[in-house]
Amino acid sequence: MTDQLFDALIELADDNLVLGHRLSEWCGHAPMLEEDLALANLALDLVGTARALYSLAAEVEGKGRTEDDLAYLRVEREYRNLLLVERPNGDFGHTILRQFYFAAFMEPFWSAAAAGSSDARIRAIAAKAAKEMAYHLRHSGEWVVRLGDGTDESHRRMVAAVDALHHYTDELFVASPAAEAMAGAGVLPRREAMRAEWDRLVGQVLAEAGLTAPDVPWPQIGGREGLHGEELGHMLAEMQYLQRAYPGATW
């Protein structure tokens, strides 16, 4: 039980950190100042949630590891994040669509956890994250509509973004053995149970944006087993550089 709770928390923490890190790459480079601030806010939310989840995982594990040990001292095969969140930022449209797909899952997921988790610590993390995700969902959903509907160029770019990212979305609903066990124990919501709400939210926004979800003959799945694309390793090499170069130092 403890091992599985630890594993399930790490999966969620990795999703949040990896996506938060990706968003933080925009800082200083966004299409307009207001979005620079907004993307930094989203990144801060996700990094904050990741920290809470890693800390809880470390506590559950009880081996004296810290949030930073978990974030900085695991290699890519040990990272358990979804493939969707590690995708490179691409253009602003890709970043926004990736955020929208993620938030359309996490908002209902955290809301369900806040209401129904048997673990009070998870309810607390989830309550905060659910509120944040409601904002991410609104912000990214509005942008998907704006960009899908805006100009010929923005529409073309959003079609390309849907094409590039949609086949990573099935993985949102896949439960690892740890996630399955935690759902069975009432600690975390069942991922598959978010499907109807996700379909509704995504269907509505894509329709309003004049975009269509493509058929996905072969969904990309593997992050929960540490089977990533090639980009994650580079991201971790950058992120972990100081901890790796100066082992044991305090920062």
Partner: peptide, 11 residues
């Protein structure tokens, strides 16, 4: 970012 700003205005 030009295409994003233009799209926001157009929308």
């Amino acid at each position: 970012g030009a295409w994003v700003r233009e799209a926001a205005l157009a929308h």
